[in-house]
Write a protein that binds this DNA or RNA. Structure first.
Length: 158
DNA sequence: GCCAACGTTGGC
DNA sequence: GCCAACGTTGGC
């Protein structure tokens, strides 16, 4: 049941805000603050045990730093109801929360970050959302093939 | 810090 | 429902 990996994802975060280092230290964390409907819908489709590529955006270099796992499926993001939070959404109703969060766990850190440049240059990753021009979505599905390929690059350099 | 890309909002 | 204005993302 929950042990089966059903899907793969890529999640973007700015490491200055929330990075793989922090997830590794804590072991588990909350993926919150997503305020885009498409990304939210993907989050709601996540299942416990799904694996994801942890992508560092606005970093030097930007790229995939490692792997995480979904440990709790989507639930209402508490920050949408907190007027003091930058993620506060006054239009979201408690009876029908607009935004979701998931909990994530640490799986592995690659020996090196696979930069966006490398991802773009790899012929086996054509079509992956993160390498497509103009794709800013912070949550995207990844095919099993692409996921395995990036993990292989991260572990073995290529 | 700049700016292209693109999502959202709101006037009409 | 159109679309201009505005805001955000994120590479560079």
């Amino acid at each position: 049941m929950g042990a089966l990996v059903s899907a793969f994802w890529l999640l973007k975060s700015e490491p200055d805000v929330y990075g793989l280092d922090e997830l590794e230290r804590a072991g588990e964390g909350v993926w919150e603050g997503v305020r885009n409907y498409q990304a939210r819908n993907f989050m709601r489709a996540m299942r416990t045990g799904d694996l994801f590529l942890f992508y560092h955006s606005n970093a030097k270099p930007s790229g995939v730093a490692g792997v995480g796992r979904i440990v709790r499926e989507a639930y209402p993001d508490p920050f949408q109801f907190d007027p003091k939070s930058k993620y506060y959404d006054p239009a979201s109703l408690a009876s029908d929360p607009r935004w979701s969060a998931v909990n994530v766990g640490f799986v592995e850190r690659f020996p090196r970050v696979i930069s966006l440049e490398e991802l773009k240059a790899h012929p086996g990753l054509v079509g992956m959302a993160v390498v497509q021009k103009g794709t800013r979505l912070s949550v995207t599905p990844v095919s099993a093939e692409h996921f395995e390929r990036v993990v292989a690059m991260g572990r073995f350099g290529g």
